[in-house]
Amino acid sequence: MRLLEDLGRFILLFSHALAKPPNWRMYGKELIRQMYDIGNGSLIIIALIAVFIGAVTAVQFLYQLDGTLIPTWYIGYIVRDSTIIELAPTISCLVLAGKVGSNMASEIGGMRQKEHIDAMEVMGVNTASYLIMPKILAALLVIPLLVILAAFISIIGGYLASVLGGFMNTEEYTRGVRAFFIDRNLWMMLVKAGVFAFILTSVSCFQGYYVKGGSIELGKASTNAVVISNILILVSDYLIALMFTT
């Protein structure tokens, strides 16, 4: 029952959020601010995680393929496809749900508690639209770019672990990275990045927008934002994988 109630409120909130802005310039400014916050604020953590994703994937597959007939240059291929298809979008977005999502829930929840949202409503501002839409749009624009960057850095991470680790030479790794390329996998990565970006921002904004009470409730809203986003990201990851592979 509670789930249905929340779903109804979620749909209502987003139907309000889709209203035409009274002033595009203000929304544009807010969009740029959000893009900067999401992009600049997450760049280092995404790059750091990505390099280790690539390195660990390379090392673990080297271990698993050791002693088999599969040639070692396959490692480049495995690292490339596993990061593009799965690891870069999913792990990046799970991390972003924790970082960006909880931040959005706290920001909007704090505004609710400090009556900022009420103040805007009295002025006539459509707060669902002004506070939520720029965040979602910013995430839809910036998170796919972060995911592309994460995939690229992961492949470099795989290179560092395999070549600098002395398991193969540059030519072998490059041969693997260039082998069996299917461009549809890139689309799968971008679709995942877009869907996950929408999930993590919309769920977090929803949790923050309806927060009631004090700091404990704000903390719970922030935690719920991360937990629910993560679950929905994993479920949608599975569904997108089914869509693209069957």
């Binding site: 009274p22 002033n23 400090k114 900022h116 103040a119």
Partner: peptide
């Protein structure tokens, strides 16, 4: 547009300066 309200906790937007807070309704509408 004809209504102004002062809130108990002032409800000023923390990320904006005094000037930006006062200008906000004009910027928006």
């Amino acid at each position: 547009m004809k209504v102004g309200m002062l809130f108990q906790g002032s409800a000023l937007f923390d990320s904006m300066t005094v000037e930006e807070n006062v200008r906000f309704p004009m910027d928006m509408f």
